Computed example of a mutant assay.
Amino acid sequence: MDLSIIIVTFNSESVIGDCLDALGKWAGRTLVVDNASKDNSVALVKKRGVELKELSQNTGFARGANTGARLAKGKVLCFLNPDCLPSEELLKRGYSAVNQARALAAVPFLYETGGLKTDGRQPGYTRLKLCHDILSTAYPIKKFDKRIKNISGYHDRNWSWPHGACFFIKREVFLKLGGFDSRLFTYMEDVDLGYKLWRAGGGLVQLNHEIRHQTASGSNISIAHRRWLMTAGRVKYGKLHYGTLWAVMLGMAALPGLVIKGLLK
């Protein structure tokens, strides 16, 4: 298979070893791009003899993944988070789906921590959905999730996006689309890519196979820091797609809740 596997790490020592072990012989087709980790991530990758690109500073997931795509040689790329445990069967199915079908990208189901099974192909974003995501991260409104998500027009069913934890895409297509938008440091870059795929007329295949995903374990950062990154990514996405004023207003609305949560945890 003409496949390259790209893993972006940042302080990922707790999971990268298991990920590379799960890849087995496919670790030889893997390129790890490290975003200036301060832990033992780099040492663990070097110990296993996997190809490594060390960056001098943390450039964010989008830039790191784009660097990997430019350096990769495979016709098909598999973007893989370090907190995932792939199987050889998954790699074969993902490669075949992208290489043989008309679809431009393919995604597995994600078997998340706690037993939740998540579709890798997610429905498109709307203003309402983005607003809900931002505010639910900042405030305790999750008990209303079901009601909000049942509102007509919550999802944009015209397009879908690939969950960034694991997906397959032709290298030529990825580079032609400009890769991930590097203005999105981390979070929402996969959503933005899905929108670009749709605009390019490409389909997204949901594979009948799953991958184990150790949810939110790819980078050893605090819960509060992760909330800030998620919100910042969503606000930036809002700015790019819906305008600066809308994004600023939503960001300011979320700020008090994020501050309070940050102080409590």
Rank of each mutant, 00 (worst) to 15 (best):
Y195V: 09
K38Q: 12
L3W: 08
L23A: 01
N40H: 11
A138F: 09
S182D: 08
D119F: 09
D119V: 04
G203D: 10
I221N: 00
K73G: 15
D192A: 13
N150H: 13
A106H: 05
G49T: 04
S4H: 08
Y95R: 06
G124V: 12
A106C: 05
N40G: 13
V107A: 04
F144S: 11
H155R: 13
E13S: 12
R29M: 07
Y195A: 13
S37C: 03
G178V: 01
T30G: 05
S87E: 11
R157E: 15
H163F: 12
L175A: 05
G262I: 00
K170A: 14
K47R: 15
R234G: 05
K38I: 09
T67I: 14
M249H: 09
T137Y: 09
A216F: 10
F109C: 06
Y154F: 14
S160R: 03
A22G: 01
C19T: 07
S160E: 03
F167I: 02
K47F: 10
L204A: 04
A200K: 11
A253F: 01
A216G: 04
S152W: 12
N11E: 11
G164H: 01
N99G: 03
D190S: 11
F167K: 00
G68I: 02
Y195E: 14
G179C: 10
S219C: 02
R63P: 03
Q57E: 15
L263Q: 06
I134V: 15
E112D: 12
P162D: 05
E51P: 03
S12K: 05
K73I: 11
G257K: 00
F180L: 07
W246D: 03
R102T: 12
E210G: 12
W161Q: 02
H132S: 10
R234F: 01
M230G: 03
K129F: 10
A216D: 13
G74Y: 04
N150A: 15
L90V: 05
L31G: 05
M1A: 15
A224S: 13
V8R: 04
K265Y: 13
I16H: 05
L31A: 06
V248S: 06
M188Y: 12
E88N: 07
V33L: 02
D34L: 01
H225D: 15
K261V: 00
P108E: 06
G64F: 05
A22D: 08
A27M: 04
N208G: 13
G24R: 07
V259D: 09
G257R: 01
D181L: 02
L193K: 04
L110W: 08
G115M: 00
I223K: 14
K73R: 15
K46S: 10
V32L: 02
V76N: 08
E13R: 13
K261Y: 05
